[in-house]
Design a protein around this nucleic acid. Structure first.
Length: 258
DNA sequence: CGTATTGTTATATA
DNA sequence: TTATATAACAATAC
């Protein structure tokens, strides 16, 4: 489930195998995955462009070229980048292929959510991604209170990309569990120390997740427990509670997260 | 067939 | 008006 850490891993792959290289061709076995132009149009715009260092904002990978055209990638639920040699056989889920001077970058994505967009300007990029809040990696207590301190429940706010960018369902639960805050607490009710705790735990969870390239299902983390048959809190052993918050499945510890 | 997950969009409500 | 809540939709594996 590509959230911020997973996309950061894709950014590293693009940086390692793409940056500095020139695009020779673009092909798309699944042409509908190229969203706002055709594969041919993408190829025309990108032909012979040199790839720069890619950026990430929330769950979006922004791969700049030359200076104008940017490639925007969103990985949906199942997408990832694969660096491959030119003669490597295609995988059935390789949806878009960027052929470079050396090797290829392939968007491998079993389910065709997400996709590839072309943006010729900052404004076009914004239209594609929608309004994105500040990236969650780097958000401090001030920013969190400022962005999430509304009257709504905290978890849906955490996942709202316009408020803070990069968190999905798994990370939101993980961070709230670490910070011992109930997912349905209203942002407006939180105290100063809770914002600081939230920011500290957010930083900790993101640090370790970004390093791993995904949210690790490690001991002592909610993600390591939530898929068990009888999930219990890794901290206190209480049976975890499962519910629906903001339309998403949510796990929390009824004892730690009051 | 329902569930799961990422988003977007539309509509309703406070 | 703005923010929030709810539901539908898209895609595909299990």
């Amino acid at each position: 489930m590509p959230e911020l850490p997973d996309v950061e891993e894709q950014r590293r792959i693009w940086a390692r195998h793409g940056a500095g290289n020139r695009i020779r061709a673009v092909s798309a076995p699944a042409k509908d995955v190229v969203r706002n132009t055709s594969p041919q149009g993408l190829g025309r715009s990108l032909h012979d462009r040199r790839l720069l260092e890619p950026q990430r904002h929330g769950k979006w990978l922004i791969a700049a070229t030359g200076d104008r055209p940017r490639i925007l990638l969103h990985f949906g639920m199942t997408g990832r980048l694969v660096a491959a040699a030119n003669d490597e056989p295609m995988h059935e889920h390789d949806r878009v292929v960027f052929t470079l001077d050396s090797g290829e970058l392939r968007l491998r994505m079993p389910r065709k959510l997400g996709g590839v967009w072309l943006a010729r300007s900052e404004a076009e990029a914004r239209d594609v991604t929608g309004v994105l809040g500040p990236d969650a990696w780097g958000a401090d207590g001030e920013i969190l209170r400022d962005r999430l301190g509304g009257r709504g429940a905290l978890k849906p706010a955490l996942m709202d990309q316009a408020k803070v960018a990069g968190l999905g369902n798994l990370l939101a639960d993980e961070v709230l569990w670490h910070a011992r805050i109930h997912p349905q607490r209203r942002g407006a009710e939180l105290e100063g120390h809770e914002w600081r705790m939230l920011a500290r735990q957010l930083r900790k969870v993101l640090e370790q997740s970004v390093e791993a390239g995904h949210v690790p299902a490690k001991d002592g983390w909610l993600t390591g427990a939530r898929d068990d048959d009888q999930p219990s809190c890794p901290r206190c052993g209480t049976a975890l509670e499962r519910g629906d918050v903001g339309g998403r499945t949510t796990w929390w510890c009824p004892r730690c997260q009051q």
